[in-house]
Every structure is written in structure tokens, then in C-alpha cells.
């Protein structure tokens, strides 16, 4: 997930709270009061979030109303995940079964072929 800036997070908070598609005007109205942001600021932020694929206009409405594609939980999880990755040295204190475990699909296929060819048999987990 792309990072959400703190300003963008304000918009996300509203979307998560309302639980319904919101127009830019509706978001802007609240932020004008709270943060004294003008409409175009809010509009820019909304556009940015849309470009990142974090929110999406629900097209069936005449005026674009936005819905979040990321739940708050997912967002928090991702934040914690990125936070955790900052403690790389601490991670080494845990005994992890595989280090990092970040392998590409191609790598995985490669390893599977290598292993299963060596052991004889097909490519699936034998369960």
C-alpha cells in the first residue's frame, strides 16, 4: 500500500467514519471547519488518494462520491507492518523460520522446481 500522508489521513478518517460514499464537497465542508482547508486543497488531496488507489469514485452517482478501498484496520496493520520493518535488528532476536520471506513468484517457482526435482515428485505440497 502506498503511504498515506497525515493530511490525506484526515480525509480517510472522515470516509472511514461516515461509512458511505461522500462527495468532495461534503468532505471539504467538514475540513473547512476543522482545519480551515479550502475546497481546492481538499480536492487535491482527494485526487491524490484516488491516484494512489486508496479511494475510488462510486460511479453510479452523478457527482463523484468516494469510497475507501482500504479499511481502517488494513491501514493500521500496514502502518504497524512498516513500523516493524524499521526494527530489523530486533527481528533478528525473534527466531523466524525463514529470513524476511520476501521472495518473488519467480523465485518461489524456481525453488520449488529445484527442491521437488531433487526430492523426486510433483510440485505441490504433499499433504
Amino acid at each position: 500500500m502506498d503511504k498515506i500522508s497525515s493530511a490525506e489521513h484526515e480525509i480517510m478518517k472522515i470516509l472511514w467514519r461516515e461509512q458511505r460514499p461522500l462527495k468532495v464537497a461534503e468532505i471539504s465542508a467538514e475540513l473547512e471547519q476543522k482545519k480551515a482547508w479550502n475546497k481546492s486543497t481538499t480536492g487535491t488531496l482527494v485526487t491524490r488518494l484516488r491516484d494512489k488507489g486508496i479511494i475510488e469514485p462510486a460511479e453510479r452517482y452523478g457527482v463523484a462520491r468516494y469510497i475507501p478501498l482500504v479499511t481502517e484496520d488494513e491501514y493500521i496493520l500496514a502502518q504497524e507492518q512498516s513500523l516493524l520493518s524499521k526494527f530489523g535488528s530486533a527481528k533478528k532476536l525473534a527466531i523466524a523460520m525463514v529470513r524476511n520471506g520476501h521472495l518473488s513468484d519467480a523465485d518461489i517457482d524456481d525453488l520449488r522446481n529445484y527442491f521437488n526435482a531433487g526430492m523426486g515428485g510433483d510440485n505441490r505440497d504433499n499433504e
Binding site: 524476511n100 520471506g101 521472495l103 518473488s104 518461489i108 520449488r112 504433499n126 499433504e127
Partner: peptide, 28 residues
């Protein structure tokens, strides 16, 4: 065989964030 495949599966389960350098992947 199950054990080895589990090792691979465990690595496969978490997809690499794009940002991680390929050198790192090679090491793993």
C-alpha cells in the same frame, strides 16, 4: 518433502514489497 515445501510456502506467503532491493532477495 512436506518440510521443504513448507519452507517454500512460508516464504511465498508474504509478497515482497516492491521497494526491497533485488540484492536482498538474492541473499534470501
Amino acid at each position: 518433502k512436506i518440510y521443504g515445501n513448507t519452507l517454500i510456502s512460508v516464504s511465498a506467503a508474504t509478497k515482497a514489497p516492491r521497494a526491497i532491493a533485488s540484492a536482498m532477495m538474492c541473499e534470501d
